[in-house]
Nucleic acid binder design. Structure first.
Length: 256
DNA sequence: ATGACTCGTAAAACGAGA
């Protein structure tokens, strides 16, 4: 069962890129982020036409998350992260598919820092830690997948020189990610590829793709029951080089 | 280098993204 996460950076603007990748790689489950469309604008008919059913939580202009499943109906379990009823940003959706609990996560970017956006990021991260802890205790196959907007270590970025003040590299962001690992969650791609950077994002600016000036931001965290089934993981890098591409590439893990 | 791309939105050579 191949489970992928892909920050699509506007699903309607890049629908042909998405459909092309789905047909080529045939992932069983796809967590999408940055839909950048309202609920009524989500292209469910086009996805259904190639065999993917979906649950989604849209928002005008920004954010927006979805979960797709091939030849299956995802069973929605939540469409927001608990802990702040006043948070109206669409950044979390969760569904059960074929016996696995799957979350699609678009963690706040947090720039500029310090400031209110960074405070929101850290507060959101703390809510995620709390919810992840509850899921861990359930001891079920679960996958937390998404754009976590953190560069976990200096090995996960081409060069830190121009990024030192960025919210993605701050010790507070890295510590918050570290707390998820301390709960026991396994970083699937890093687990199977400890010696390669495995970037998943290349900025549109400065010829980042051509220079392979990347960051590893898109991550799949596996519960104990899910990690026992981990067989392979990777990044579909070639997708980043296509015309009209998102600045992120699909990242995936295959479970037995 | 408060830069650089890309886009949505609206009427700002702007803001958000990362």
């Amino acid at each position: 069962m191949k489970i992928a996460t892909y920050n699509i950076n506007n699903i309607n603007k890049r629908l042909s890129n998405l459909l092309r990748w789905l047909e080529a790689r045939e992932p069983d489950v796809v967590c999408l982020q940055e839909l950048k469309c309202t609920d009524v604008m989500f292209p469910s008919k086009q996805l259904s036409a190639i065999g993917y059913e979906a649950v989604w939580k849209g928002q005008k202009s920004w954010n927006g998350v979805a979960i797709l499943a091939k030849e299956r109906e995802p069973v929605l379990t939540r469409d927001s992260l608990p802990g702040d009823p006043d948070d109206i940003q669409s950044r979390y959706i969760e569904a059960a598919i074929n016996g696995i609990l799957i979350a699609s996560i678009y963690l706040p970017n947090g720039n500029p820092q310090p400031g209110p956006k960074f405070n929101y990021k850290l507060a959101w991260f703390e809510r995620l830690r709390s919810h992840a802890s509850d899921l861990w205790k359930m001891d079920v196959p679960a996958v937390l997948a998404g754009d976590l907007n953190v560069v976990p270590t200096d090995f996960d970025i081409y060069n830190t020189r121009s990024w030192l003040n960025n919210a993605l590299l701050q010790p507070e962001s890295r510590s918050a990610f570290g707390k998820l690992l301390q709960q026991g969650w396994i970083d699937a791609v890093r687990e199977l590829h400890p010696d390669e950077p495995m970037y998943s994002f290349w900025h549109y600016m400065r010829n980042s793709w051509e220079r392979d000036a990347g960051l590893r931001l898109d991550i799949l965290l596996l519960s104990k029951a899910a990690s026992k089934r981990l067989r392979s993981a990777g990044v579909d890098r070639d997708v980043r080089g296509h015309s009209n591409a998102s600045d992120h590439a699909p990242t995936w893990a295959e479970l037995d």
